[in-house]
Design a protein around this nucleic acid. Structure first.
Length: 458
RNA sequence: GCGCCGUUGGUGAAGUGGUUAACACGCUAGUUUGUGGCACUAGUAUGCAUGAGUUCGAUCCUCAUACGACGCCCCA
């Protein structure tokens, strides 16, 4: 059997509906903030990702999907969204657009050659947004708040925004040097990994899991002490603006983004969800004022954010967030003989084109089995087509909740369904708090009345 | 790249070096000759991830590979 590739997922069934819903919410919210959708290629010249990232990490060497195509080009499957957007910004001369800053968002698959674990796959889907062409802290805050509000809208209860500032390049460099100078004499007190980090990425020592309680870390120089006056003022502004929006945030000096191109504001948003595993950061971002020029464009200050949809969906599932997802059909058409089948075929089309969700029988099951199928599909109404009724231009429609059956003239069937489904719109609601059911029960009882399932009271 | 655990039917799973691989759910059909959700009955894996080895014989032992889960490194 051919199986899917390591670290890749098939998304289908109910989970796919959740993804679809999340996508819709993203689209809707981005529209309100006036971010324009942008689609860039899934693969790019390797150079695009390998430049600008910096030499400090394993990313370039180990963790990207690189290959040489038939024309001998070095290609990389995009591991993230920002580089492609920036390339597009430059190539299409968006910096010349009178409408500045350029605000865009994307939503697509990314590829990273990593060992899969909880919250981490080789193919992942991320959405993200970028504001290119403004250095105003207002933009930093807009991006943070947009992400924050999106998570809130979807129904996540506890989300935490961690922010930090790396300062401008000058501050950043000074701080890095200070850290190396501070840790170097004590290198033997650090864990093996941290010894490596000292050379490669000293900022990462600060959130080392092993050395977390080491006094050395507590007394280490703090980034914020190394910010110059301008950088500090800028960071204060960001906080002031966040306060206005009542975003719950925390200044966390250990937030260090992995890439070299970040400066000033960096942030991460984590979900506090039980059982979420080691990777509980939904998304992160920051300001990258140097990247556009580094990739050959004009000096352009930018800020952006990216978030993994897989993790987001996982968080929603773990928190059992109720989403307005349609998982039922309006009407199930049943039939037995060929004549009725033909009418079912015809009627299904008519009703679907009129806007109803209609299902019928496809596998020649017995009538009894068709009723079971209707229940599985959570059909709100069922209809057993009967040759005799059809000859009288009538049809029997049964409300699957009340079990009441009406004989309806085919001429008014559309109006009947419209009325029934319209006025009884709460039919598919889950039972309220009064219900006897335990959490997670998937019974069809409504509003605590006449619950059809019978849990033993413990 | 490293570590640890795992892989039995549509699903949850039990199990043993030796002719028929429990049990449950689900599904299909019948009892009920066109109105179900209950009950009862019957059916439902030439098969225990793949390959090799040990053995008279392996789903069960050994090794390798693949994949899954979790963690480390790294995290765009």
């Amino acid at each position: 059997m051919i199986q899917r590739q390591k670290g890749c997922n098939d998304i289908y069934g109910m989970e796919a509906k959740v993804w679809k819903y999340v996508d819709q919410v993203i689209d809707a919210l981005m529209e309100k903030y006036n971010y324009n959708y942008i689609r860039t290629p899934i693969f790019e010249a390797s150079e695009l990702f390998h430049r600008g990232v910096g030499e400090t990490t394993d990313i370039v060497t180990k963790e990207s999907y690189d290959f040489v195509d038939k024309g001998g080009r070095n290609i990389t499957l995009r591991p993230e969204g920002t580089a492609g957007v920036v390339r597009s910004f430059i190539e299409n001369k968006m910096y010349g657009d009178p409408n500045q800053p350029v605000k865009v968002y994307y939503n697509g698959t990314m590829y990273r050659y990593e060992r899969p674990q909880s919250g981490r796959d080789r193919e992942l889907t991320q959405f993200g947004m970028e504001v290119l062409g403004s250095d105003d802290p207002l933009c930093d805050v807009e991006v943070i708040s947009l992400a924050f509000n999106l998570y809130k809208m979807l129904g996540l209860k506890e989300i935490k925004v961690n922010i930090n500032s790396l300062g401008d390049n000058e501050s950043r460099k000074a701080y890095r040097e200070a850290l190396v100078k501070y840790f170097k004499p004590h290198i033997n007190d650090l864990c093996e990994d941290c010894k490596e980090r000292l050379e490669k990425n000293p900022l990462r020592i600060l959130d080392c899991k092993v050395d977390q309680d080491n006094k050395l870390l507590k007394n280490a120089p703090k980034v914020l002490d190394y910010l110059n006056e301008d950088s500090m003022a800028r960071f204060k502004k960001v906080q002031e603006y966040l306060d206005i929006l009542q975003i719950n945030y925390e200044v966390n000096p250990n937030i260090v983004r992995g890439l070299d191109y970040y400066n000033h504001t960096v942030f991460e948003i984590e979900a506090k969800v039980e059982g979420f595993g080691a990777n509980n950061v939904l998304g992160g971002g920051g300001r990258y004022n140097g990247l556009v020029s580094q990739l050959g464009g004009p000096e352009t200050p930018c800020v952006g954010f990216a978030s993994g949809i897989g993790r987001l969906v996982k968080a929603l599932e773990l928190e059992k967030v109720k989403l307005p997802i349609i998982d039922s059909v309006d009407l199930f058409l049943m039939y037995v003989n060929e004549e009725e089948k033909k009418y079912a075929l015809y009627l299904a089309q008519e009703l679907r084109m009129a806007g109803f969700i209609v299902e019928t029988e496809y596998t020649g099951r017995s009538l009894k089995a068709q009723f079971k199928q209707a229940d599985r599909l959570k059909a709100k109404f069922t209809c057993v087509l009967n040759s005799e009724d059809l000859n009288n231009n009538e049809v029997k429609i049964k409300n699957n909740k009340t079990k009441e059956e009406d004989i309806i003239s085919l001429d008014v069937l559309l109006y009947y369904l419209d009325e029934q489904l319209g006025t009884d719109s709460d039919m598919n609601d889950d039972c309220g708090d009064d219900c006897c059911c335990e959490d997670g029960c998937e019974c069809d009882c409504h509003d605590g009345e006449k619950c059809s399932c019978h849990h033993e009271e413990e």
